[in-house]
Amino acid sequence: MELIIAIFIGLLFACGVYLILRRSIVKVILGIFVLSNATNLIIFLAGGIKSEAVAFIPDDAESLNPELINDPMAQVLILKAIVIGLGIAAYILALKYRYFEVTGTHDLDQLKNTDQK
């Protein structure tokens, strides 16, 4: 299972990097989203995964078998990263909208004015 997820993360990173290198700003934004999901999966995988194990202790548990507990910390970190991703997604789409209103283009090559002057 780890191997499959690792290969999948690699694929996601490749997709993200490819999208980020495109000229259209929409694709760059999509690339950012793909990359942020790939990083969430890295945390998930690095925290260690076990099948058929949950990340919390049931109310009526008398004793604890560590084999049946997933590490909750990694999932907490992912939750926070997702929340931050939500905020960034909202902002970046608003920025894109405003950018299109101001410049009337999707092309990142039109961005060079501030670098030249």
Binding site: G48, L77, L108
Partner: peptide
């Protein structure tokens, strides 16, 4: 847009580093 995208990439690098370190 330049500020945003490069800094987001830096944040992604950081959080992947955190994940690997925690692992």
């Amino acid at each position: 847009i330049k500020y945003l995208i490069l800094n987001l990439i830096s944040a992604l690098f950081f959080v992947s580093g955190v994940g690997l370190l925690y692992g």
